[in-house]
């Protein structure tokens, strides 16, 4: 029911949406979230590291939690890793349901939990040559806990 992928390649939102809805006549709503690399403070690139043996397993758990809370016909979580430059898409969440409320709410839930419960780490590289690991934000923890 959940399509999970961790990949370096860019994802195709149209193809993923078609895959999520193919052959179904009971879906009334698909919600999507696309996270994009932003050029803050002279950022040249973001390098995403993950824990390969754990990542997909953690994402499956997060998807299962969403499917237990909302009546979804399916969902898609794709997270890119490696070096991503400003403007590049980083993460895709798609949720499908009969009605929009379940699709929209579960999409927001999945993003909040992906940010705090999947083993990814972002390292920022700047145009001046400096680099730093992104620090976890208390706001993200609070957002994940509100569900």
């Amino acid at each position: 029911m959940a399509r999970i992928a961790v990949q370096e390649a860019e994802f195709d939102v149209s193809a993923e949406t078609a895959l999520l809805t193919a052959g179904r006549r009971d879906i009334g709503a698909v919600a999507s979230f696309i996270g994009i690399c932003r050029a803050d403070d002279g950022l040249a690139a973001m390098v995403l590291e993950h824990y390969p043996a754990m990542t997909e397993r953690a994402m499956q758990k997060i998807a299962a939690e969403a499917q237990s809370r909302w009546p979804l016909t399916g969902c898609t979580l794709i997270h890119r890793v490696g070096r991503l430059e400003p403007g590049a898409p980083i993460v895709l969440v798609l949720t499908a349901s009969a009605h929009r409320q379940a699709a929209l709410e579960s999409c927001a839930f999945l993003m909040d939990w992906l940010k705090t419960k999947a083993p990814f780490w972002k390292r920022e590289e700047f145009t001046q040559g400096a680099a730093r690991w992104v620090e976890a934000r208390a706001e993200d923890d609070a957002a994940a806990q509100k569900w």
Binding site: G35, L48, H50, Y51, A53, M54, H79, I90, V91, M111, L114, K115, T116, K117, A118, P119, F120, W121, K122, W133, V134, E135, A136, D140
Partner: peptide, 12 residues
């Protein structure tokens, strides 16, 4: 066990 240590996660 396989035990991993890392900073708080920052994906998404």
């Amino acid at each position: 066990d396989e035990v991993a240590f890392f900073p708080p996660v920052t994906g998404g």
